[in-house]
Amino acid sequence: MLIASLLPLLARYSLGFDLVAGPDDTVTLTIIPRKPEGAAHKPEPSETRPISLSGTAAEIDAELARGPTGALGQLIVVRRTLADQIAEQRQAAETARAAAAETAKAKTAAVPKPPVSAPLKTPAPAIPPADARPEEPASLW
């Protein structure tokens, strides 16, 4: 029943398990999703967070037997939805980035280059007024 319950996770991740016996016949099963070998995208930390189930062996078996309606099944559905949303957001961001680059490229190509003109003439030196005196500064009035 364990493997059948984990098939949706196995489709997306490589899984590691940790099984620890505790006091009073309790057991903790930890499922650790990892990036599968050869996978193109790197999973987000929220996608690869370990899943722990604690209880007696009979309680864990009963929970796993519930399949998609059990806690593990519901958690897997939520994680799959989260992973799909993240993938959609990545795709939308990549599409927007490509569109922005294309728009910038089109704008750069559409901007006309200023025409090459003749060099600017330097203004003629200012001729001092006839009543100017060398010991006084020139007046604007």
Rank of each mutant, 00 (worst) to 15 (best):
I3A: 10
S5D: 03
S5R: 05
P8C: 05
P8I: 08
R12M: 07
Y13N: 02
Y13W: 12
L15V: 06
F17K: 04
F17E: 08
F17M: 07
F17D: 04
L19A: 08
V20D: 10
G22H: 11
G22C: 03
P23H: 11
P23W: 02
D24K: 08
D25W: 03
D25V: 00
V27T: 12
T28Y: 04
L29T: 06
L29V: 11
L29E: 01
T30N: 07
I32Q: 12
P33W: 05
E37K: 12
A40Q: 13
A40V: 13
H41V: 10
P43L: 11
E44D: 15
E47P: 06
T48W: 08
T48M: 11
T48F: 06
P50L: 08
I51R: 02
I51P: 00
I51A: 04
S52Q: 15
L53N: 04
L53H: 06
G55C: 00
G55W: 00
G55L: 01
T56L: 04
T56I: 03
A57V: 10
A58I: 05
D61Y: 07
E63D: 02
E63I: 02
L64K: 01
L64R: 03
R66E: 05
R66N: 01
R66H: 02
G67W: 02
A71Q: 06
L72G: 01
G73I: 00
L75I: 03
L75W: 05
L75H: 09
I76V: 15
I76W: 00
V77T: 15
V77A: 15
V78Q: 12
R79F: 05
R79L: 15
R80L: 13
R80P: 00
R80E: 12
T81Q: 15
L82C: 00
D84R: 08
D84K: 07
I86Y: 10
Q91T: 14
A93H: 10
T95Q: 14
A96E: 13
A98C: 01
A99W: 03
A100I: 08
A100E: 14
A101Q: 13
E102Q: 12
T103M: 06
A106T: 02
A110D: 05
P112Y: 02
K113V: 14
P114Q: 06
P114L: 12
P114M: 06
P115S: 04
P115G: 07
P119T: 09
L120E: 11
K121P: 08
P123V: 09
P123Q: 06
A124Q: 07
P125S: 08
P125F: 04
P125R: 11
I127D: 07
I127F: 06
P128A: 13
P129W: 14
A130T: 14
D131L: 11
D131E: 15
A132S: 15
A132K: 09
A132P: 03
A132T: 10
R133A: 14
P134H: 04
E135C: 04
E135N: 12
A138Y: 13
A138Q: 09
L140N: 10
W141Y: 12
